[in-house]
Design a protein around this nucleic acid. Structure first.
Lengths: 224, 224
DNA sequence: TCATCATTCAATTATTCTGTTGAGTGACGA
DNA sequence: TCGTCACTCAACAGAATAATTGAATGATGA
């Protein structure tokens, strides 16, 4: 092994963190863990991956200090170590969004840009909710909703959008949110609602950002 | 190639950016480019690396949208694409700093923590400079100083610290800064000055952060 | 104590990344 | 026009990373 000066040693440490963020699956894992703690098995099920593979990637994230493990009987629950992980993820997303044309292309290809896709900001949402002007729906699966959601939000998982929209007042605007600013579920929810004749917009980002902003969170369960 | 849904495609784009940050040499390149534009050759010389290797890494950074190239005659000058790159780097450093014990160990091993290593903030420095209470030295090489420095700073490259300290007033506190919050040169400068009987502290971060904060910058040259 | 379950570890193969070398390109000046 | 210079590209060997498999480990409960 070559002799390393402290400068190189520091860069190596920083690179460990960045390298751990440098895999699509690990980023997806981080986005899920940002919703709340998960066991290895639960995370594997969410991502449709073999448990062994997820365990491997969790070790990589743990070595980089990105996630922490906590044993609870037979289960090991993983969670993000620190809110700084979310800002690092957000910063990486920011670079990609500004500099990689491909990101723009994907979003536009997925959600027709000619529609008004201007998202609702958190401040706007709070005002609209206070005045009772909108219906807020959380389109994540029920288990994630249970781990924490925006007060006043109704849980309408993506598959239930159509059924729910029948019972909703069509004239009232709907705001949808999910896991984060690029989570596709809220894009899909807005597209579905619009095709069903509703007025709908996305919240600019998701639950983890809401929580990180220090806003109130309603919770049902701790695990799972 | 497997069919990718938009979610996976987005994660892949984000991973491209993070992966590009995931190599010590590329991080060092980013820190140098944050001081100002550089030709491939100049950057290679700074890092003591073969030109071919640096060119390769620059391509990787360019594919990730982190740096941009601008041809100028025979030379190609590279620079950071966007200020968001610096925040991504800072966010990654933040995670490493909070979560990796090794980072703390390196800093402590390098610079005895029993000394007062509390850094000077930018605001503090501005007040101290306004009142004429401290001498501010920029310990980067002369070429980097020329590309932009804090108004009122004196350029004292690391090798010239000892000679300079003889001519400086020993009773006056010295504040040193260099390339960024973890740039070792200012640590070394402070250590050297203290061993020579001066009172010295580091600025909490370096030139790129000063500039990013919108504070005034003095400049001599554009290139090189 | 044993069987079971959740997770980790070790070993394997396929893939990707690194650094190096040398050839190729584009711009400049003699 | 030719040689030189700065840089890029292609190709290669060696190293690291990824996903898979099956065997260990550690906790639980019968």
């Amino acid at each position: 092994m070559s002799i390393r000066n402290p400068k190189q040693a520091l860069y190596e440490q920083f690179a460990i963190v960045a390298k751990a963020l440098g895999h699509p699956l690990r980023l997806e894992m981080i986005e899920h863990l940002a919703q709340g703690s998960r066991s290895v098995e639960a995370l594997a099920a969410k991502l449709g991956q073999p448990v062994g593979n997820i365990s491997q990637h969790l070790q990589a994230l743990r070595r980089a200090g990105i996630v922490s493990a906590e044993r609870d009987g037979k289960f090991v629950h993983y969670s993000l170590s620190d809110a700084s992980v979310l800002s690092a993820f957000a910063a990486v997303r920011g670079v990609a969004q500004r500099q990689l044309a491909e990101v723009d292309r994907i979003v536009r290809g997925y959600f027709d840009a000619r529609d008004d896709m201007r998202p609702v900001t958190r401040d706007e949402l709070q005002a609209l909710m206070r005045d009772g002007l909108v219906t807020l729906i959380d389109v994540r699966p029920a288990d994630e909703f249970a781990l924490g959601h925006v007060p006043g939000a109704i849980n309408v998982p993506l598959g239930e959008i159509k059924a729910w929209s029948g019972s909703a007042v069509a004239s009232r605007e709907v705001v949808a949110y999910c896991r984060g600013p690029w989570c596709v579920m809220s894009f899909e929810a807005v597209a579905a609602l619009r095709s069903l004749g509703h007025s709908a917009r996305r919240l600019e980002d998701g639950m983890p950002e809401w929580k990180a902003a220090g806003l109130p969170v309603e919770m049902t369960d701790r695990w799972r």
